[in-house]
Design a protein around this nucleic acid. Structure first.
Lengths: 175, 175
DNA sequence: CACAACATGTAAGATGTTACATGATTGA
DNA sequence: TCAATCATGTAACATCTTACATGTTGTG
């Protein structure tokens, strides 16, 4: 990915502590891009080693200590460089286990294959419904980025549906 | 992914040696799913440790030794189990660096953002053209799976294009 | 007081890429 | 003979997930 740039981007706006980075990022991404602490904290440590962020421990309420992370000048420059070249890469990926499995469906009988494909189509249908519903229920104060992420998900599900339909047709029709 | 299942699937048809697994798999996937030796050989070793495949060294022409890998009964069972449950998972993913970068475009001026977005649109356009051309030039003896992979790529590029158009519209129009 | 949310981390392992290292065989 | 292809691997690193481990603070 990396989480690295997400962290730098958030810190480039204002300092955050670790926990808040996770919360904010996942909210931005509409839960479509989860972050684990097992990745977050090691990445923050690494960014410190690379002098792209600094950490300062501050006293929170009573007994809690929070680690506030800030971006350095180098970090900011590094981030802006990354930001400016994101439009130059062609990198759409269509690697997924379901697609892989299609190559081996010959091992199964025709009836079973049909059942599997139809079941997958139903799976896509309910997924589409789920996100469409979410999308339709957004209110006036739903941030644009949240709406955009859900919309992106819907469009890609529709692409998958379309593709699966074509695959089923090819498998069903004699050729 | 895993490559693991791709290997098992190929070996489930007939024994292969390592090099051939890479060639065959990449041909199947129309170059849309590259495999590195740095992943292939360690995975083969691991599959042996798990008793899912066996290896036998055979004498090739003259001085070459080839390692022929075969699937075991356990491996075959394990693979078929995997194959049958691929229709049950909902796992479309829309995590990519470009999408991430959109959240931070506020750091750039309006003119620069517009330029970046249009440049990305052009990038998608040429990518679409590239795969469409490939698709149109397939002959009667092009295998179905090859055609299907390219078609899948095209559909997802179209989804990206559609989405980008909407993002640009939202960014351009006052709201 | 109990439970959810806040807060910070480590350990082990899965999965993958890039670069390095070596050598044989085939075809132009 | 020279380059492409065939053939097998290792080492280092990058990225990410899951499970574990610990403790505080706010709310009903």
């Amino acid at each position: 990915m990396s989480l690295k740039y997400a962290i730098l981007g958030l810190l480039d706006r204002e300092p955050h502590y670790g926990y808040a980075i996770k919360q904010k990022f996942e909210h931005m991404m509409g839960k479509l891009w989860p972050v684990s602490y097992g990745q977050l904290y090691p990445t923050l440590r690494k960014l410190q080693e690379e002098k792209l962020v600094t950490m300062k421990t501050v006293q929170g309420k009573k007994a809690v200590e929070k680690n506030v992370y800030s971006i350095t000048e180098n970090g900011s420059r590094y981030f802006m460089e990354w930001l400016r070249k994101q439009n130059k890469k062609e990198q759409i990926s269509i690697k997924d286990e379901f697609t892989l499995s299609l190559f081996f469906l010959g091992r199964l009988g025709v009836t079973e294959v049909k059942e599997l494909l139809y079941a997958k189509a139903r799976e896509f249908h309910s997924l589409h419904e789920k996100y469409s519903e979410e999308y339709d229920h957004y209110g006036q104060n739903t941030p644009d980025y949240r709406r955009a992420m859900t919309r992106k998900m819907i469009l890609h599900i529709e692409a998958e549906q379309q593709w699966l339909e074509e695959v089923i047709r090819q498998f069903t029709e004699p050729h």
